[in-house]
Computed example of a mutant assay.
Amino acid sequence: MKTTRGQGRWMWSLIAALALTAGVGPMGAAEKLPVEATVADLAFLAGTWRGVSSTGWAAEEMISEPRGGVMLATAREFVEGRCVFFDLVVFADREGRVVLLPHPNGKRSPHDFPLVALDGAARRVEFRNAANDFPQTFVYQVDGDGGLRITLSGEGHAETYTLRRVERGE
């Protein structure tokens, strides 16, 4: 089929518009867009979790129930019984979307991480902000065996926390 110069320009404009709609950037990389959800959709994360980090350190994460558009998570890592790292994470409703607001060692990160993927059936959520150096992505996955895997990744590096649900007093 032969196209005229005007038809060819129109076709390329259509292809470019479709690529932008699909989230494909100039290099062909897909950038995930924020997902419409509420903090209540993350209720499956609530609980007290303990295990280890990929560094071998003991790790603990306590995630509150969703209430008032907010969930709070506190985390600690231990070496030989001594806390070597702590973090506060706020999951908050913002304009029809959920954002993760990290506070490593108690200091607010300058970056918000919007929710970019939510699979309630698989009990998996992903937050992303490519502008941050590390991590750029937070993934929380609750498995069928009662475990929680948290993966932080970016710039060719990943840290994973493999945790099990525990009762609060344990």
Rank of each mutant, 00 (worst) to 15 (best):
I63M: 05
G56M: 06
G47E: 01
F78M: 12
E31I: 07
W57I: 10
S54V: 07
E31A: 10
A58I: 05
T48E: 08
R67N: 03
A75S: 15
W49G: 05
R50H: 02
T74V: 15
L42R: 10
G56A: 13
T48I: 05
G28S: 07
G47D: 00
E65C: 11
E61N: 07
E65N: 08
A43Y: 04
L45A: 11
R67A: 09
A46G: 09
R67I: 04
I63W: 10
K32S: 11
W57K: 14
A30P: 04
I63T: 13
A46K: 01
D41V: 01
F44W: 10
A29K: 11
A58K: 14
P34K: 06
M71Q: 12
V39Q: 00
T55N: 02
S53L: 02
S53I: 15
D41C: 00
I63D: 10
T38Q: 13
G51S: 10
L72H: 09
V70Y: 04
L33I: 04
A43G: 08
G28V: 11
V70L: 08
T48H: 08
G28M: 06
R76W: 05
A46H: 00
L33P: 00
L72F: 14
V52C: 03
S53K: 04
K32V: 02
K32A: 14
E31C: 02
F78A: 12
S53Y: 05
T55K: 11
A58L: 07
L33V: 06
G28K: 07
T38V: 15
P66T: 03
A73H: 10
V52P: 00
V35Y: 02
A37K: 08
A29L: 11
G56Q: 15
A46I: 05
A40Q: 13
A73S: 15
G51V: 12
A37Y: 01
I63G: 10
P34S: 15
A59I: 06
E77V: 07
M71F: 07
K32R: 15
R50S: 05
E61A: 10
A73R: 11
A58E: 07
V52S: 14
D41L: 01
E31Y: 10
W49C: 03
G28H: 04
R76F: 03
E31K: 06
A59H: 11
I63R: 11
E31H: 06
A58Y: 09
F78P: 03
G69S: 06
A75R: 05
S54E: 00
E60T: 00
L33C: 12
G69T: 03
T55D: 14
W57F: 13
A37S: 14
D41N: 15
S64R: 04
S54M: 09
G47F: 00
A75P: 03
D41Q: 02
K32W: 14
V35K: 09
